[in-house]
């Protein structure tokens, strides 16, 4: 049995009076790709934000690599290898591509490692190497998503949280992005993926959780959920 890298137990998060996450519990094992699917406003992004310390849970426990991280500052978690590539990609358009890459390694103090990771990133994403002096804002949507992933790899994450990597991209580019995610996972990075595109997310993950209005509705192996009639009806557009 692999080690559990991330464990959420009875997480409750509020936006003012709104109860956004109602007792979420989930687990991610080392080396897995786990996906969270659900409709708009179900609480997927809030779950990720809570994991990386942008939101706080009122109850329950939040453990990363065996440690309680419910009170950890976000930048500390990045140092410890828990990194999120945000929804909407979060590229800094006023910084060059190279600077965007480097800011991904901001928490990393080891200069040699930074240069090594940078070289590796450019090797995996040659398109970014060609454009490293361009401003981030001049890239296309697909390139920006590539940059977002490449950037989050700069701090050598152990667990990568990806929030809607397919958002607003053409199907062909979505395919490339998911191939990249597979490759990153093969390199040893555990991935927790949030997606509205349930079909592709289930095909590229080991296990999945379905979130409905702040609660885990269904969980199981991705291959099983792909043929689960409830998932098919609600998320895969089949009946």
């Amino acid at each position: 049995m692999a080690d559990t890298i991330l464990e959420l137990d009875d997480i409750n998060v509020y936006y003012g009076a709104i109860h956004a996450l109602k007792g979420i519990s989930l687990k991610v094992e080392q080396g897995e790709v786990v996906t969270l699917i659900g409709t708009n406003g179900a609480g997927k992004t809030t779950t990720l934000a809570t994991i990386c310390g942008l939101m706080r849970s009122k109850t329950g426990t939040l453990k990363y690599a065996g440690q309680d991280i419910s009170k950890c500052a976000t930048h500390r978690l990045v140092c410890d290898g828990l990194v999120m590539a945000p929804e909407g990609r979060g590229i800094f358009p006023n910084l060059t591509v190279g600077e965007n890459m480097r800011i991904g390694a901001y928490a990393c103090k080891d200069k040699v490692a930074i240069e090594k990771n940078l070289a590796h990133g450019y090797e995996v994403f040659p398109r970014l190497a060609e454009r490293k002096r361009q401003k981030g804002g001049t890239l296309s949507g697909g390139e920006q998503q590539m940059l977002a992933i490449a950037r989050s790899l700069m701090s050598q994450p152990k667990l990568l949280l990806l929030d809607e990597p397919s958002l607003g991209l053409a199907p062909l580019i979505v395919k490339t992005i998911f191939e990249t995610i597979d490759r990153v996972n093969k390199d040893g990075v555990t991935i927790l993926l949030v997606e509205q595109n349930a079909n592709i997310a289930l095909k590229h993950s080991d296990r999945a959780y379905v979130i409905e209005s702040g609660e885990i509705a269904i969980e199981g192996k991705s291959a099983d959920l792909l043929i689960d009639p409830r998932v098919k009806a609600a998320y895969l557009g089949e009946s």
Partner: peptide, 22 residues
């Protein structure tokens, strides 16, 4: 590097935080 962090924070504080910027 701190200057780069300033430019990043001035554009998008939340994302800068996610990148490990204090």
């Amino acid at each position: 590097k701190p200057g780069m962090a300033m430019r990043a924070v001035s554009f998008d504080m939340r994302t800068a935080r996610l990148m490990g910027v204090n």
